[in-house]
Computed example of a mutant assay.
Amino acid sequence: MTYQDPRGRQPRDPDPRTARYESGYNPDSRAYSQQDPYAEPYRDSYPADPYAAQGGYADQGGYAEQPRPARAPRRGPEVNPVTFAGGVVMTGVVTGLAAWLVAWIISAFVEKVNESGKLGVWNPVAASEIWFGVVGFLCALAAGALWYVLQLITPAPNQFYRWIVALLLVAAVLIPILTYQQTSVGIETAILHLVIGLPPLTIIPAMGVKSLQRPAG
């Protein structure tokens, strides 16, 4: 829609959004310039985009990429040292007590068999009950140290730990059976080695995961 300017100027469309559809439209013409006082009210009626004014859009039509916070370099496993050390010690206590108890049960059973004389004479366990208890405690401490070292140097520490301990446990069970001259002593020793190896294989990884510190936030 056009109208006649009362000051005798050329007819123009007062609305800049529809001016391009009028005949004789020239965007460079002063009649359609935004500096014209008649065009100022229409220009000011549309506020500027606040997001564009603040740089909220990228130059190519997308959203501006937000800067990512830099990650701090990892210096070691985020393990609570007090909780981890306490868990390793208690695993050693459990392993030592289990080995001592099983050794005592085997010794008592062997003595009963020898007293009866019906099944021949069996040799007792190759070592005393206290010896197996101490060995079990030390094996648990070594297993805790192994788990911590694997946290430092391997990408999948729990998997490597389980494989290493499981292979050592199989060897500790089979070697006495295959190498001892007396089969009874080999079987009894293999049973005690199995009892010593099971707690570090199962308790240490679970305890280690529970000792990991979760990042705040």
Rank of each mutant, 00 (worst) to 15 (best):
D28K: 02
I106S: 10
P124I: 05
N123I: 07
L119I: 04
Q66G: 04
N123L: 13
W131Y: 15
L141Q: 13
D13I: 04
T18H: 10
A19T: 00
L101F: 14
P69S: 08
N114T: 12
Q54L: 15
G136Q: 03
G96R: 02
S33Q: 02
K112V: 11
N123S: 15
V113Y: 09
G55H: 10
G76L: 02
G120E: 06
R17L: 14
G55A: 06
E111C: 01
L138T: 02
S45N: 06
L150A: 08
R74M: 08
E40L: 15
V110R: 13
D44H: 15
T83I: 08
Y148T: 10
Y148A: 03
S33E: 02
N114L: 11
G117H: 07
Q151R: 08
V149D: 00
M90D: 06
S45L: 09
I105S: 13
C139N: 02
P41C: 07
G144R: 01
K118M: 13
Y38R: 15
A58F: 00
G62F: 12
V102R: 12
G96T: 05
G24F: 04
G24T: 09
E40H: 11
P67C: 09
A143T: 10
E111F: 02
G86Q: 12
P67H: 09
E78G: 00
P14S: 05
I105Q: 13
A126P: 07
R75M: 02
P69L: 01
R30D: 14
T83Q: 15
L101C: 06
R17T: 10
L146R: 00
L101D: 01
N123A: 14
T95V: 05
G61I: 13
G56H: 06
P69N: 05
Y148P: 01
Q151F: 12
A85G: 08
G87S: 07
Q60D: 14
